[in-house]
């Protein structure tokens, strides 16, 4: 539980962080809330020589509406998301996800950008980010690059971020019409991470489903959008039968994780049941 020694630099601005990263390259790691990075360093699973701390960069911590989008700075903490009045009003899925993430200490320190950049296969944010069709803004000496959430999560602990890039912002498209959202989760009894986490973002018009975003985490080596669930909903009336039939496709086409707590067979069952529950809650909120 003793990390290898490292240098620590507190960047004063995003530009400075970018240039520090360009200088130290692979030797460096970005430090956000430290709640994934530091445990990994203590176990010596990671041994960066330099930590570049984003913690003092105020310009990376915000939640705002701009250009018809919601924009969340990478260094916004889980707690800030959880308690944002703006988000509770226009995108309650995010606060609902935050309340189920870790515990109070973790939510006070951990950041949404850090979690998305870390891309733990059982983390909560990726499910919500996917369900909401979000975009991720990566920045480097070359400027900004916008990445769709669906192409951001590459595999376990690997994202589309390139060397030298810093995750700067998460953008969520503004909703059209009435929306109903929900996040439900089976917590692993030891880690508290998601054995299964299902985020749902539905829009309906005239009783018919206009659009459906279903993001699932914990089930496979990376979070994914459950395409067959979504297609089972779109254009249909959101009655109990439809929801249940769609939910049965929650784990279609993915490699299912298996561990001491839940075998692949059982996890698939949990994914199905919890997807149905999330859909039911989201649908009920459309009213």
């Amino acid at each position: 539980m003793i990390p290898a020694s490292f240098d620590y630099i507190a960047a004063k601005s995003l530009d400075e962080a970018i240039s520090l990263l360009a200088t130290h390259k692979d030797d460096a790691k970005i430090l956000a809330g430290g709640h994934s990075l530091l445990p990994a360093m203590k176990l010596r699973l990671m041994q960066p020589k330099v930590l570049i701390d984003l913690g003092r960069i105020k310009e990376l911590s915000y939640i705002k509406e701009e250009a018809g989008q919601l924009r969340i700075g990478a260094m916004t903490t889980h707690f800030q998301v959880e308690t944002s009045d703006l988000l509770r009003r226009v995108c309650p899925l995010l606060p609902e996800t935050a309340t189920q993430l870790g515990d109070m200490q973790v939510r006070n320190k951990g950041t949404i950008g850090g979690s998305v950049a870390h891309s733990d296969p059982a983390a909560d944010w990726p499910a919500a980010i996917l369900a909401l069709d979000a975009e991720i803004v990566a920045t480097s000496a070359r400027g900004d690059r916008v990445i769709k959430a669906t192409s951001f999560f590459v595999e376990m602990l690997t994202t589309a971020l390139e060397p030298g890039e810093i995750l700067r912002e998460i953008r969520i498209p503004g909703g059209k019409g009435k929306s109903g959202q929900a996040y439900v989760k089976v917590r692993h009894p030891a880690s508290g991470f998601a054995v299964v986490g299902v985020a749902v973002n539905l829009a309906a018009d005239g009783g018919k489903c206009q659009s459906a975003g279903v993001g699932i985490t914990g089930v496979s080596p990376k979070a994914y959008r459950a395409a067959n669930v979504e297609s089972g909903l779109k254009g249909n009336a959101l009655d109990a039968k439809t929801l249940s039939a769609a939910a049965a496709h929650a784990a279609d086409g993915v490699d299912i994780n298996s561990d001491l707590y839940a075998s692949a067979e059982y996890r698939k069952q949990l994914a199905t049941v919890y997807t149905r529950r999330a859909l039911e809650i989201a649908a009920s909120r459309l009213k």
């Binding site: 692993h188 009894p189 030891a190 880690s191 508290g192």
Partner: peptide, 15 residues
């Protein structure tokens, strides 16, 4: 296999 508290489940208050 249960070498850390990420794997060995101790009951928490919410449980």
């Amino acid at each position: 296999i249960t070498g850390t508290l990420m794997d060995y489940a101790l009951p928490k208050a919410i449980m």
